[in-house]
Simulated assay, not measured.
Amino acid sequence: MFYWLLKYVVLGPLLRTIFRPDVRGLDNVPESGPVILACNHLSFSDSIFTPLMVRRRVTFVAKAEYFTGKGIKGRLMRQFFLATGTIPVDRSGGKAAQAALDTLLRVLGEGGVAGIYPEGTRSPDGRLYRGKTGVARLALESGARVVPVALLNTDEIQPTGTLIPKIKRVRMRFGAPLDFSRYDSARGDRFVERAITDEIMYELMVLSGRPYVDVYASKLKTTVEPPGPMRLPSPLDAGAPADR
């Protein structure tokens, strides 16, 4: 009930009025059945705008620290994440990634909508980075279709490190659902998982118009010079490698 009030009566209408969202392709999200929303990740606000724009309830996972803050701000943040369906995951241990995937797999098993950021972290500079194969494992194990979601300018609305967002029209694009049922017999094959992930990242690159870099964003902290942009091979390219 609190979720319904927040999304449709309180926060949803307020954000639509302030940020005047330009959302295209929303009808690409199936009205029923398990669905994975695979989003590029530019800003903290991505996890706010995406669930509020989609008609169905969207479940993301977030680090547990978001649920343990102190004071009024901490309580408000905790209530917001709980109301929007976000589930806390302890990221301190080595099994954190698997715990997140198990949580989302449970959501998909119940016919719900799971949101995931294949890059695994926010882009440090606005470019699109190599996707991790967890999204492919989710798709293969659940049989869910994958809808690529491109957030076009949330890094301008709320740059990393800023608390108060700028008042600017938010722009989002939802791509056509991707069906990977043709790979059902290849579950657990890391080359297939890489091929699926690259196909999803290619669609995000096309939708977002952002340059692609074939490096994990999380590894940039150890990189002396930022890597240059690359073109991600299209799934239609003849001879495109399954892994690099």
Results as ranks from 00 to 15, higher is better:
residue 1 M to P: 14
residue 1 M to T: 14
residue 2 F to L: 13
residue 3 Y to T: 02
residue 5 L to T: 09
residue 6 L to P: 01
residue 14 L to I: 13
residue 16 R to H: 11
residue 16 R to C: 09
residue 18 I to V: 15
residue 21 P to C: 10
residue 24 R to I: 13
residue 29 V to W: 06
residue 29 V to F: 08
residue 30 P to V: 04
residue 30 P to A: 04
residue 31 E to Q: 14
residue 33 G to E: 01
residue 36 I to Q: 01
residue 38 A to H: 05
residue 40 N to L: 10
residue 41 H to W: 09
residue 42 L to V: 03
residue 46 D to A: 05
residue 46 D to K: 02
residue 47 S to M: 12
residue 47 S to F: 08
residue 51 P to N: 05
residue 52 L to D: 01
residue 53 M to Y: 01
residue 55 R to L: 10
residue 57 R to G: 11
residue 59 T to G: 05
residue 61 V to Q: 04
residue 66 Y to N: 11
residue 72 I to H: 08
residue 75 R to E: 12
residue 80 F to Y: 06
residue 83 A to D: 07
residue 84 T to W: 00
residue 93 G to F: 12
residue 94 G to M: 14
residue 95 K to P: 10
residue 96 A to E: 11
residue 96 A to M: 13
residue 97 A to H: 08
residue 98 Q to W: 11
residue 100 A to Q: 02
residue 105 L to Y: 02
residue 108 L to M: 09
residue 111 G to Q: 09
residue 117 Y to C: 04
residue 117 Y to S: 03
residue 119 E to M: 04
residue 120 G to C: 12
residue 122 R to E: 11
residue 124 P to S: 11
residue 128 L to W: 04
residue 128 L to Y: 05
residue 130 R to I: 06
residue 133 T to H: 05
residue 134 G to H: 08
residue 135 V to S: 00
residue 139 A to C: 09
residue 146 V to R: 01
residue 153 N to P: 02
residue 157 I to C: 07
residue 158 Q to S: 07
residue 160 T to I: 14
residue 160 T to D: 13
residue 162 T to W: 09
residue 163 L to E: 11
residue 164 I to M: 11
residue 164 I to R: 13
residue 166 K to T: 12
residue 169 R to D: 10
residue 174 F to H: 03
residue 175 G to S: 09
residue 176 A to F: 11
residue 176 A to H: 12
residue 178 L to Q: 05
residue 179 D to G: 09
residue 180 F to G: 01
residue 180 F to V: 06
residue 183 Y to F: 14
residue 184 D to A: 15
residue 190 R to T: 10
residue 190 R to C: 05
residue 192 V to E: 02
residue 207 L to Y: 02
residue 208 S to F: 02
residue 208 S to L: 01
residue 210 R to G: 01
residue 217 A to Q: 09
residue 219 K to N: 10
residue 220 L to D: 03
residue 220 L to R: 10
residue 225 E to C: 12
residue 226 P to W: 07
residue 230 M to C: 15
residue 231 R to Y: 12
residue 234 S to F: 05
residue 237 D to Y: 08
residue 241 P to G: 07
residue 241 P to S: 11
residue 242 A to C: 12
residue 242 A to V: 14
